[in-house]
Structures are given as C-alpha cells and as structure tokens.
Nucleic acid binder design. Sequence first.
RNA 1: GCGCCCGUAGCUCAGCGGAUAGAGCAAUUGACUACGGAUCAAUAGGCCGGGGGUUCAAAUCCCUCCGGGCGCACCA
Length: 552
Amino acid sequence: MNPADLSAALLTIVTGIAGRRGSTRTLTIDDVLLERPRNREHGDWASNIAMKLAKSLEVNPRELAEEIAAEAAKLDGVASVDVAGPGFINITLDAAAAGALAKTIVEQGEAYGRGDLYKGVTINLEFVSANPTGPIHIGGVRWAAVGDSLARIFQAEGGLVTREYYFNDHGAQIDRFARSLLASYLAEPTPDDGYAGMYISDIAARVIALYPGDLSKVPRDEQQEVFRSVGVELMFGDIKASLHEFGVDFDVYFHENDLHESGAVEHAIDRLRELGHIFEADGATWFRATSFGDDKDRVVIKSDGEAGYISGDLAYYLNKRERGFERNLIMLGADHHGYVKRLMAMTAAFGDEPYVNLEVLIGQLVNLVRHGEPLRMSKRAGTVVTLEDLVEAVGVDAGRYALVRSSIDSQVDIDLDVWGRRTNDNPVFYVQYAHARTHSVACNAASSGVDRSAFDASLLQHETESILLGTLAEFPRVVRQAAELREPHRVARYAEELAGAYHRWYDNCRVTPLGDESVEDVHRTRLWLNDAVGQVLRNALALLRVSAPERM
RNA sequence: GCGCCCGUAGCUCAGCGGAUAGAGCAAUUGACUACGGAUCAAUAGGCCGGGGGUUCAAAUCCCUCCGGGCGCACCA
C-alpha cells in the first residue's frame, strides 16, 4: 500500500460520498493527495479533503470526515483511521502494508521514482549559453548545475529532453574578443572595450601555433579574422571541456550566426508580418510587442539595416517550434529578467501560448565571496573565477550539490575558501555517507549470512522503520513536484531527509545480528529495507548527477 | 518612477493554504572492547521584516509600507 494506491482508493470513496450528496464537481487524484503529518501521533498519512469539500457540500467538515473515515477504515492494509482537529483524516497503515514498499523498491531498482508526467512531451531546455569570449565563469555555473539536473528530472518523468546551448556568435562582443587576441599577439595594449586576462594571451598563442603559415606576413584585417574564427573555436572547445568535467553535456550547440545566414531571421519576420504584427517607422522595422503586453515595441531591423537583437530571439524561437518542441524553457540570470515580457509577447504573436510553449526561468545571481567580502568579477578586467577553479577547489559533487540545493529564487554566496576547507558545511557528504553506509551494512550482512531469502513486512515495527518507510514512499511525488515546479532543489532536500531517517534507523535497528544471536527473518527483512534506502539515495543523487560512493 | 526576486533560529537556507514552523553549521551536554562516530540522542535558540485584509485555517494568497539584490536602448 503506497500513497498512490491509498489516494486512488480515497478518491473512489470520496467521489461516491460526494455523488450521493448531490455534488456535480468531478474530483481528481490531485484533490486527495496525502501528506505525511509532521507529528507521528497523527498516523502515517493525512488528508484534508473533508475540509476542502465541506463548503460546497454544505456539511460540517468533521461530519464529512467521519463518513469518509468509516469507509477508509475498511480498506485492505489500513490499520486505523482517525478524524482530528477541524477535519483531518489520519490514516495508519498495517506494518505489513507499509513495509511491502521496501521490497517493491528493491525490485523496481532505478525505475523507482520515475513517473509519466511528461511522457512523450518534447522539451527544449536552454541554459548556460555563455558567450565564448572567455572561460565559463562562476555566474554561469549555477545554470549548468540546475539546468542539467532539471533535464534529468524531466527525463525521469518521461520527457523527451534536448539540452541546448545558444552560442551567441553574431554580435560585437566576438569582434572585441578577436581584437583583444590580435592586440595580445602584436603586443599592443588591450583595446578599451576589449577583454583582458591571462586566458587571452594563452588563446592567442594557441591560435598562432595552429596557423599553418607565417601569420606575421598577412594583412592586419586577415590576422584579426584568423584570431576570430580560430580563437572562438578554441575558447568554445575549452568551455565544452570544462562543462563536461562538471558533468554537463549538451545535445545541441546552436549558433546564432546560422540564424542570420540561413534566412531564418527573415523567415521569422515575414511570419510576423503575415500575422500583422510588423510595422515600419523612423526608418526601422518594428515588432508591435505592445499588442501582447510588452512595455514598448521592439526594433527587429535597425535603420542601418542591421538586425536588432530581438530578431535573433524571434528566429530562434520559431526554429525551435519548427523543430517540433512543444515546451521550450530558457534559463536566465536575474540580470535578464527584463526580457521576459518581450519573449512572452513574441510567443503570443506567433499564436502560441505564453508560459506554456515558452517558459523563462529566472534565477538569482551568485555572489562570489572571499573572506566574507564580496568579490567583483569582470571578464573584461580579467578578475574571473571560473568553473574550473570551482571544480579544483571543491570537486564536482560538492560544487554541483551546493549549487542545486537552494531555490533559484534565492541568491547564493560562493566562498571558495569555505567550500573547499570546511567540507562538512556541505550536506552532500551527509547524504553520500548514508549511501556508503547502506553498502557497508549490506556487506556485513552478507558475511554474517543474512540474505534476502525472506521478507515479512509485518516485522518492520520500530518507529524509525515506519518513518523511514514513509520517507521512501514520498520519493516519486518529490520527483514529480520538482519537475512540475522546475525546482531541482527539492530532490536534494529530500535526499537529506532520507539520509537522516536512515541514520536514525541504523542507530536503532540492526541488520546483522550480534555475535551470539541467530539470523532471523527480521534481519533478512531489514536487509531489504537497507537496500531500498541505498537504491533511493542512488536514484535521487543520479537526478543531481552527484556520485553515490560505496565508501568514503 | 515602473517591473522581477528576496527578507524565517547566531550563520546558510528549507517549508509557499493545513495540526505544536524545520534542517545543516555554530553553542552546551551525553552515547561505541555492538553492522564505519563523516553517526546518533538531548538542551538552548523564532512577534516567519512591519501593518492591514481574504479564509474554518496564512510563514504561505491579496494590498500597503520598510529593507536588500537585479533590471527598464534602433547595446549585444
């Protein structure tokens, strides 16, 4: 009896009662979701359905709750049902019914926790998308960790996910990058609007080494072109490599330049023109974004004939839709939140549904801190802390976990000294230790002759076992909720809760009997429970792409 | 001026309509010649920024004020 079964049974009961009382409202499984009461005296699962329905049925909530409780008490696997407070229905399961989950989890293995919320839905997840004008700095690191975990969570819910990196190689920033490389090569000072930093001279040296002829003999503008094309390629290769080190690999690297060269921009503008959302004014071509809630109209073709910035976004979105993606998500930093309105206006203008076909996830920026003092980073000034610096200081597991553990709505401070030195501050080790412990418990059990040849769930009677089973039962819903709300941090917080419940169980219940005791079914059954915990910890950590070590 | 995010234990943050608001770190005190003490138990610590409202029920939803972060280009 897992919470999903219980919810379904409850739905049947409540629908029957509501129907008899003349309700016309159709109830769904979401109306009868169960929650785990904080207080153990309130049973294993609780429902507030009676309080929610009381008003529309014009009955006293407690009276309705009693009616539901009476029927729920007859369900198989339910030990008792109580009505408490203003109308909570508290359900306590038979130990056997609750404990059966341990075996189910072991049998389902990696599949436990997966769902079908986005089964068959094509999802395009665009994140990081940093310009290849320098190494990926720590501001972009958060989206690498969060975006990749979100992709894994969508996949666990059946989504057909494409991880996409939008490579902004059309604008003036790339030119500045090329001029900076050239200046370094010619030993000239860095251009005023250029990029400084050690990496510029490194890249310049590698470009020169790769050039087949004598670069000093070609004209200056050709030199700059060489630095542009080869330099961007090298820089981008470095970015890909450090993201790969961090466990993040993209399916598609999309070049903005292709949109301009392939005619996709004109195509998108033509499409909007057909729909009547384009007009000419002041020598420029405009998108009438104000018709769709934006603050101002946006220039798609500037009066000098160049494409305006938004035209790339128009073409890119249309391209994604034409590639068949039903849902398109873009992750941006808070410094870009002003774009949301115009992107939604664009979505509506194309005849799509804002916030459904396109979603923009805004995450707060990360602050780099050293010795408690905020550290200003600037790619142009060369004071950059990179992804590689982070990995070197704290490792992939701790880095990813720390970045994904808090809500993207809250700002996080990264202090490399603290993260590197006091690793105990990072709860990832608490979770990983719990996993390592499940492994060593299983090893000890094996050498003491405890195996999984018997399973009697009714023997899982201890309070810590009941809490542990309840926590295990929640995992599928946590994954689903993380997907629905686009909040990977929920998986991390859940893993911590499960690790805690496991450690407390370990302290109270032995899997391996003491020296002079014989192996009983209770030990064999507990081994199933131990292994179930290990499996769920592995499944949860996998969603974050954090390793689940067998020893530490 | 307008818009988005945040204000919860000493610190870092969960909880975002439900019962007595939680965790880690820090503090104090305990627990292995018993499956790894990177653990566990216990104590202490809160007008959930202030004030209104909606609701049977508000940290959670609405309004307003205060404080902090970030944005409001024919730049990308």
